[in-house]
Design a protein around this nucleic acid. Structure first.
Length: 614
DNA sequence: TTAGGGTTAG
């Protein structure tokens, strides 16, 4: 229906008109206006080419002896082979160009292979060659090899430059090795031969953002503003994106305005981050404004921008609209890529429309895009969540046959699916298989399996697994302890659960609202209602206020223990805080009413009246 | 010729 409306509007809309006439569309939500914008944008795109027309070479300019254009690794290998046949051999600079282009294509293993061939053919290398090599190892998460390349500099008497140092800083930050990254930074400062530049600072800013430390990132930005090395578009965009990811869109927009006031023009990356931020919050009107704004500045949305739109529409339950955007992209020659299709596929999976999800999977291939591990994981997740484990397992085998390596996400998804189906044996088998295939289980894998074991009343196996996890030096987080405390409570071992709960601070962990709620539930199950009530007060005092779930749990606990007198106060507290009883608690309250507990009737009625929980 | 920013999965 909506798609039909969009199409109808397309025909009636002038190509340069962004202020869409709302005739006949008043009934639609604001996101529909946003979609109409998307369609209008496409119309505009065709009458105003997005890419500037390339200037033709003047007669005075000398033609460049450029290398043939390399668009894939095969081209690179061919050109490289031809260069090896030339006599005299081309300069190292020309070989560097090939390596650099392959690195730009993100084929880092191929870069290493080409570098090794250079060695065999006795082609020398310079600072640039080694920096490209370090960068490749960094992207392959092999910092050990990167550092061994650094050793080659000294062996060959070469001096690393600021490109080398920046590459190393980036590599360490990618592996979360902040101290070592800082060490390199200090080395630049102390060395005196080269100075940190805007890329060095930009890399550090990204490092702070990756750690979720926006405050430190902004502090560094301010220092740059005061100093000689002024922040550029990349530094601002990095922080804007990080703020958007943390849903701090207003702060991001303020920084965006500040950046423009300083004369720094945004680009499609800056706008895509902002659009992502507002779409995640469902602010479609704001998304439309930003899209209008960017196009008015001749900045055009690209595949990233459209993928963001498709993904957020799907996550917001508007799969039909997302499908419409993809169709529009195809019709208007902006080719959706694997990421776009994966997002759309996930949208169908979320709705349980697995046959449509499967169609998108096939469509990805027919449109010339590759399905990747994420494509398989998305589809596997869809099947798992809808209890279609056979189909999910078939996909695991299929992806392996196609040469794709299932990763920790693949296995975690499948292990979770098996656990939720009560197939603990299959889950444990997958757990062994992943390790045999070289995929190391992470904390999340253990959490999934521990939860499955606890919920299926296999506490002793769970404890054994927990010990195994500790032995592997994986740091158990609060999620793991929540699972164990809940498992102990479920097994009636309330005292053990309480001991584990009280020992959390000595492990440097803070109980969260879920931890308290699980413990309160356990204490109520064990008939220790006064302790449960004390814990309710304690959590408040420790700055972790109870939520609706906590109240529902404690109210149920009191009713089940026939302590109806205290129920009145608890219901009142819950209602005052704007929470309401869920269906299960309501049932118990109704049951209480039928027993004619008139004294608590008034408050109970308030609670039931506000019931909107499932 | 080499370095930093935006999209998908558990």
């Amino acid at each position: 229906m909506l798609k039909m409306m969009i199409r109808t509007t397309t025909a009636a809309t002038s190509s340069s008109c962004y202020c869409w006439s709302s005739r006949g569309m008043n009934c639609l939500h604001s996101n529909s206006t946003f979609l109409v914008f998307v369609n209008n944008y496409f119309a505009f795109f065709h009458s105003h080419p997005s890419k500037p027309i390339k200037s033709t070479r003047t007669q005075l300019e000398q033609p460049k002896r450029d290398l043939p254009k390399i668009t894939n690794v095969e081209d690179a290998f061919n050109v490289f082979d031809r260069m090896l046949q030339m006599r005299p051999l081309p300069s190292v600079v020309r070989f560097n160009k090939i390596l650099g282009q392959v690195a730009k294509l993100k084929h880092y293993s191929a870069v290493i292979s080409l570098y090794n061939q250079m060695g065999v053919s006795r082609i020398g290398h310079d600072v640039c060659t080694l920096t490209i090599l370090i960068n490749s190892y960094c992207h392959l998460n092999q910092m050990g090899f990167s550092l061994s390349v650094l050793g080659k500099f000294f062996k060959l008497g070469l001096e690393p430059n600021v490109f080398t140092f920046n590459t190393l800083i980036n590599g360490f930050l990618r592996e979360n090795r902040v101290a070592e990254a800082a060490g390199i930074f200090n080395k630049i400062i102390a060395g005196g031969n080269c100075q940190p530049n805007v890329v060095t600072y930009g890399t550090l800013v990204k490092g702070f953002c990756m750690k979720g430390n926006n405050r430190a990132a902004i502090q560094l930005l301010r220092k740059m503003e005061e100093g000689a090395c002024k922040p550029d578009l990349v530094v601002y965009s990095t922080i804007i994106d990080s703020l958007c990811k943390d849903t701090l869109v207003d702060d991001a927009l303020n920084l965006f305005s500040e950046m423009m006031c300083k004369g720094i023009a945004p680009n499609v990356i800056t706008y895509t981050s902002l659009i992502h931020g507002v779409c995640k919050l469902g602010e479609w009107k704001e998304a439309t404004r930003l899209l209008n704004d960017m196009v008015s500045k001749n900045i055009f949305p690209d595949v990233f921008t459209f993928s963001v739109l498709v993904d957020t529409l799907c996550k917001g339950g508007m799969v039909g609209e997302a499908e419409g955007v993809v169709e529009m992209m195809i019709e208007r020659d902006i080719q959706p890529d694997t990421v776009t299709y994966n997002s759309l596929m996930d949208g169908f999976c979320l709705r349980g429309e697995m046959s449509k999800a499967r169609k998108v999977f096939k469509l990805t291939l027919s449109k010339g895009s590759m399905v990747n591990v994420v494509s398989y994981n998305t589809l596997i997740n869809g099947y798992c969540k809808h209890k279609m484990m056979d189909e999910a397992m078939m996909l695991l085998r299929e992806m392996t046959c196609k040469g794709l390596v299932p990763n920790v996400v693949t296995y975690n998804t499948l292990v979770d699916g098996c656990c939720k189906e009560g197939k603990l044996g299959d889950a444990q088998q997958l757990f062994s298989e992943m390790q045999a295939c070289g995929q190391l289980p992470n904390v999340q894998t253990y959490a999934i399996l521990l939860d499955g074991l606890c919920k299926n009343r296999q506490l002793s196996t769970a404890i054994q697994l927990f010990k195994e996890m500790e032995g592997k030096k994986l740091d158990a987080d609060i999620v793991i302890y929540n699972i164990l405390i809940e498992g102990l409570c479920l097994a009636g071992k309330i005292e053990s659960a309480r001991v584990l709960f009280r020992g959390l601070s000595s492990k440097g962990l803070q109980p969260n609202v879920r931890t308290y709620t699980i413990m309160i539930n356990g204490l109520c199950i064990g008939g220790r209602t006064s302790e449960a009530e004390k814990l309710l007060t304690e959590m408040e005092e420790k700055g972790c206020p109870p939520n609706d779930c906590t109240y529902n749990v404690i109210i149920r606990g009191f009713i089940n223990n026939n302590e109806t007198v205290r129920v009145t106060g608890l219901i009142q507290q819950m209602v005052e805080r704007g929470f309401s009883a869920n269906a299960w608690t309501t049932e118990l309250i109704v049951d209480l009413l039928s027993k004619d507990h008139l004294t608590i009737m008034a408050n109970i009625e308030i609670a039931i009246g506000k019931n909107n929980c499932s």
